[in-house]
Amino acid sequence: MFDLVLVMIAGAAAFAFWSAARGAAERAERIGRQACRAAGVQWLDQTVHAAGLRLRRGDDGRLGFERSFRFEYSEDGTERHVGRLVLHGDTLVSFSGPVRASERDLR
């Protein structure tokens, strides 16, 4: 009986981890798509790819997962560029990727 309870707890923890990872990937995808749309560039492959996972303390001092994602975009339809973003929970911690068209024109 005790073994069954442990298996159920482990299963619930694994499901919670998977669900949080899926939610973070969906949020990262929305952020990447919006950035590409705002910059007027083409979002490639229609997805983000998990690039890293680590434990990190938040501003409140609590431990949480920091997930890194990458995505690809194209400014001209031929060259591929890599964008990266990092989420701590639902909070965007860092972003590098396409810039808005008006900022790009300044170069």
Score class of each variant (00 low, 15 high):
E26L: 15
W43L: 11
A51S: 14
E79H: 14
R54N: 14
R37D: 13
G77W: 05
S68K: 10
D90N: 15
G77C: 10
R54F: 05
V86L: 12
A25P: 00
W18V: 00
G77F: 08
R62Q: 13
Q34C: 08
F65L: 15
S68G: 07
E29L: 15
S94C: 07
V41Q: 02
G64C: 04
E29M: 11
A13H: 00
R33H: 12
E79T: 14
R22Q: 11
F95H: 00
F69P: 01
Q46G: 13
A51L: 08
G40L: 04
G97C: 06
R70K: 12
G97Q: 03
E72S: 12
E75Y: 08
G77L: 09
G97N: 06
G40Q: 04
W18P: 00
T47A: 15
D59I: 10
A25E: 11
D90K: 12
F69E: 00
R30S: 14
D76G: 10
T47C: 12
G52N: 08
Y73H: 07
F95A: 04
Q46W: 11
L53S: 11
V82C: 06
E75N: 08
S96F: 09
L55K: 09
A51I: 02
A38W: 05
G97F: 06
G23T: 01
E79V: 14
A24H: 03
F65C: 04
L87P: 01
A14S: 06
F95Y: 15
D45S: 12
L55T: 07
R30N: 13
